[in-house]
Design a protein around this nucleic acid. Structure first.
Lengths: 153, 153
DNA sequence: CTTGACCTTACCACGATGGGAAGCCCTATC
DNA sequence: GATAGGGCTTCCCATCGTGGTAAGGTCAAG
């Protein structure tokens, strides 16, 4: 089985299959006489495992760990569970960051006329975040410290 | 004012100030005779604006746009609002992705013993996502298509 | 035997940030 | 005035996961 066929069958691009090989996430594929990589059904399973792990948001290093546990027939499920739950915490932390950004922006947008006039609490917040522009005192919620995390962090 | 002082006062690292200059997000700083960059109070405001924008999760390109609107005294607040609300949608889309990942993982982890035994629905899902391992039929929810997005996407 | 689709390696790009090296500059202390 | 230390300069590399592209070899169908 070619790398292209393996890619189509696993959902991992040929590009990424080569990449995973180069970083040692998967073992080096056997080659035909002319240098083409050859994949077996077993290799396909591994690729699908990786693909599923990426879909669940695991990092390559976490997947490396999970792959080792998968292959270890005497693994402790507690090890797997720990990795999964740690990842859930990462996901939740990221969600909280995004939530806070979105809440702030929605709040500001609510008070933006969104017409042809230049006055805009969104721009004013960006320029002077602590001014609580345009927001009547009663509606102004205390803004907690700025989130340092980026979307990609 | 030095780049180091500007960095401390704006919350943007000296490294990133130089980077923003190199990509044309901020204008090239004036230099002293010996080549040191010099920053004014006005420059500081711009840096804080950028910093605040990053904290709200805007991309550099979105911030470039917002900066232009900020400087444009005849801007339409609708333009600002559109950018902000589009970003809110991006944030919400990302949150939904993360939420789905977290839900799946929490569900799987709930059914993982987390002890010394090797059996683990998490590993089994990674290996065979469509098998609905270990989950009694009544509790198994239809799994929708795999999320392609990464955490950073 | 040609053509087109596939494979190979190798490099560059993104987005945003950090790290480090090599060299110049400024200030404080002796 | 000399010297030490910290800050500044530019330039390159790394991250993380993925895609693009170029130059060349290979395979299968016509």
């Amino acid at each position: 089985m070619n790398i292209g066929e393996a890619a189509a069958a696993s959902g991992v691009s040929a590009k990424m299959i080569r990449h995973y090989e180069s970083i040692g996430l998967i073992k080096s594929a056997d080659r035909t006489g002319s240098g083409y990589r050859v994949y077996s059904g077993n290799d396909l399973e591994t690729l699908r495992f990786i693909r599923r792990g990426r879909d669940l948001g695991f990092s390559i290093e976490q997947i490396r760990h999970l792959l080792a546990l998968w292959r270890d027939r005497s693994r402790a499920s507690s090890d797997v569970k720990r990795i999964a739950l740690q990842h859930v915490e990462e996901l939740e932390a990221k969600m909280r960051q995004l939530q806070e950004m979105a809440n702030t922006l929605r709040h500001l947008a609510t008070h933006c006329h969104g017409d042809g006039r230049p006055d805009c609490p969104i721009i004013q917040d960006l320029a002077h975040p602590d001014a609580d522009d345009f927001v009547p005192p009663v509606a102004a919620s205390k803004r907690s410290g700025a989130l340092k995390g980026t979307l990609a962090g």
